[in-house]
């Protein structure tokens, strides 16, 4: 084993992963239920997800924060899980896989920030 210990930068990704996992566990299933079933099936009033309502939500500061947290943290959670599961499907994860996985999450995060910005306040 090597004598000089190099500090691991994993805490950054681990905390993002943990935060995403926690958020997904708390509201992930509920979001799917509402957006994929309750609204389309008419269990909730149809205009709950109307364009006007959603636009107003995305223009509100708290709404923006919520959307960013859900999209970005879910992304970081997912790529971390995928990256660490790669060897289970026979891919030996190296730098390329790392860049691809976490790069996707970074791109998703930046895209969300950009979209939330351009949609106005």
């Amino acid at each position: 084993m090597n004598q000089a210990l190099k500090r691991s930068h994993e805490p950054i990704f681990w905390l993002l992963f943990g935060a995403g996992g926690m958020l997904a566990a708390l509201i992930g299933a509920m979001l799917v239920l509402i957006t994929a079933f309750a609204v389309p099936l008419g269990l909730l009033p149809a205009d709950a997800f109307s364009y006007a309502n959603m636009l107003a939500f995305a223009q509100n500061l708290f709404g923006k924060a919520f959307i960013l947290a859900v999209v970005a943290l879910f992304f970081w959670h997912a790529v971390h899980r995928i990256f660490h599961s790669l060897h289970d499907v026979g891919i030996h994860a190296g730098t390329g896989a790392r860049v691809l996985c976490y790069g996707t999450a970074l791109a998703g995060t930046l895209l969300t920030v950009w979209a939330l910005w351009t949609i106005g306040f």
Partner: peptide, 14 residues
Amino acid sequence: MALINSEVGVFNCT
């Protein structure tokens, strides 16, 4: 702590 923090430390665990 240095060992725990290092690249051979706890973050190898999934």
